[in-house]
């Protein structure tokens, strides 16, 4: 009888112990969650695709001159003979974007280079001048648009008023 009582007590105690342990674990988990929520109310750490304000693209050394689909990733230039000379001589002062958006024939590029040499401290391009001009007129030729082009790339949408 005594033995039995003792066994029952032991079981009761074990059950109580398990309940207390379970309760503590629950309190601890809720507590940790609450503390985390106080630190990071938007739970931003769980939003993997939300860009952080301070992320700045840094060129990785290996990819510095990466070519993707025939385009030089860093500058946007078309990968073709003369591209390297163009990057080396034409992107020190201004962006490659200024080169790419301009469409000129050889004569006008020559005039532009001369203007940059006279007013913008561009150096003598030597043999590279012909290489660069050839690259530009081959890959970025002027397009005929006439006196007024048709509207293109229209993004149609339903107008709700």
């Amino acid at each position: 009888m005594k033995e039995q009582n003792h066994g029952k007590l032991k079981r009761d105690f074990k059950s109580l112990y398990r309940k207390i342990l379970l309760a503590s674990v629950v309190v601890a988990i809720v507590g940790i969650a609450l503390i985390y929520f106080m630190v990071d109310p938007s739970l931003s750490a769980f939003k993997a695709n939300e860009p952080d304000t301070e992320i700045v693209d840094m060129p990785v050394e290996d990819d510095f001159d990466k070519i993707e689909n025939g385009i030089h990733s860093r500058t946007g230039f078309i990968d073709a003979p003369g591209m390297t000379e163009t990057i080396q001589n034409c992107t020190n002062c201004h962006s490659s974007k200024l080169v790419i958006q301009n469409r000129m024939n050889a004569e006008r590029w020559k005039t532009t280079i001369k203007w940059m040499q006279e007013t913008q401290n561009l150096w003598d391009l030597g043999e590279n001048e012909a290489v660069i001009i050839n690259y530009l007129v081959t890959n970025y030729p002027p397009k005929k648009v006439g006196r007024r082009a048709v509207l293109t790339d229209i993004e149609w949408y339903q107008l709700e008023e």
Binding site: N102, P142, V145, R147, R148, A149
Partner: peptide, 11 residues
């Protein structure tokens, strides 16, 4: 950007 022949500068 609309001039033809294209004019030099930001388009």
């Amino acid at each position: 950007s609309e001039f033809d022949p294209p004019a030099k500068g930001n388009q």
